[in-house]
Computed example of a mutant assay.
Amino acid sequence: MINKFIEPLLIFVRGLFMGSADIIPGVSGGTIALITGIYERLVHAIGKINFSFVKPLIKGDFSLFKKNFLDEIDFQLFVPLLLGIAIAMLTLSKVIGFLLNEYTAFTFAFFLGLIVASSYVLYTQVVHFSPKIILVSVIGFILAYIFVGLNPVATNHTLPILFFSGMIAICAMILPGISGAFILLLLGQYHYMLNALNSFSWVEIITFCLGALIGILGFSKLLDYLLQHHEEITLALLIGVMIGTLRIPFDQITTTIGGSPFDIAICIILVIIGFALIVLLEMKFKHIE
């Protein structure tokens, strides 16, 4: 009986962490899912949604619809996880926006520690290193380093643009190491969507979420296949990508930090705190599992 309450609660907490990460440029919600031990279950659960329950619903066969619906969708995972993600995004968007504007260097120093620790945790998942694994990691690093150096695209904020932005960003959000928030930054939609969350602009939020839903249902099938058949190669690529994305917080720190030794010391301390937080989080969830 206790486990029936503990498991949804732990999934909800994971959702809170994922939602918090997904609104931060440079930090991936997929990374949080990975280090808290829920990543493969999440990808597989999304990938197996084929909408086979729609056909019996159209035919009026409600018993078969109910059976297929319950078999195909992992409600025990999705309900607490999505609830946690939604609550985190709606409540923390103001806090993250304030910290990024007022304490840019300190905030990104903390993010730097998070990303470095996430790379380390992912490194521990790769059991057999080989020249091929190293080469794939280097390729991931180069591609990510170049990609995150791109300038944001000047776009408008029409509903179709928000819909397609959601489709693209969600693919990054589910990948460890690739920040969906940074993708939105490149697409010129990050601050707009952050303001939409802060002001509860439901038309924009729902449009974005519909695009995200379409994107994640398609992309998760490919990702599920790669994890099932080429896990170590996929993880090696993601390690390189995560290290490459360190360019984001590093550039932000070096361009906004004050010149005083105190500011530098605070940044170093925040890097250490961020690193320790991820390592302790991973150890805690691994122990629970």
Rank of each mutant, 00 (worst) to 15 (best):
residue 114 L to T: 01
residue 14 R to K: 15
residue 135 L to Q: 09
residue 248 I to G: 02
residue 187 L to E: 00
residue 238 L to K: 00
residue 137 S to W: 07
residue 39 Y to W: 11
residue 11 I to H: 05
residue 203 V to H: 03
residue 96 I to K: 10
residue 5 F to M: 14
residue 128 H to V: 11
residue 69 F to R: 04
residue 42 L to T: 05
residue 271 V to F: 04
residue 130 S to G: 11
residue 83 L to N: 01
residue 164 F to D: 12
residue 10 L to F: 11
residue 227 L to K: 11
residue 53 F to M: 13
residue 85 I to S: 08
residue 57 L to K: 03
residue 119 S to I: 02
residue 62 F to D: 07
residue 228 Q to S: 13
residue 77 L to F: 02
residue 169 A to N: 05
residue 137 S to K: 08
residue 233 I to Q: 09
residue 51 F to G: 12
residue 5 F to S: 10
residue 51 F to M: 13
residue 282 E to T: 14
residue 283 M to F: 07
residue 77 L to C: 05
residue 37 G to F: 09
residue 58 I to E: 11
residue 98 F to K: 06
residue 155 T to L: 14
residue 241 V to A: 09
residue 53 F to C: 13
residue 90 L to S: 11
residue 84 G to D: 08
residue 73 I to S: 08
residue 112 L to I: 07
residue 100 L to V: 12
residue 229 H to I: 07
residue 41 R to L: 09
residue 70 L to T: 13
residue 7 E to G: 00
residue 200 F to Q: 06
residue 259 G to R: 09
residue 168 I to Y: 09
residue 63 S to D: 15
residue 280 L to G: 04
residue 143 L to S: 05
residue 93 S to V: 08
residue 79 V to Q: 04
residue 25 P to M: 06
residue 35 I to T: 05
residue 233 I to M: 12
residue 250 F to E: 02
residue 193 M to E: 01
residue 19 G to E: 00
residue 78 F to W: 12
residue 158 T to H: 12
residue 223 L to V: 14
residue 104 T to H: 02
residue 261 P to I: 00
residue 147 F to P: 07
residue 168 I to A: 15
residue 129 F to Y: 12
residue 199 S to K: 14
residue 19 G to D: 04
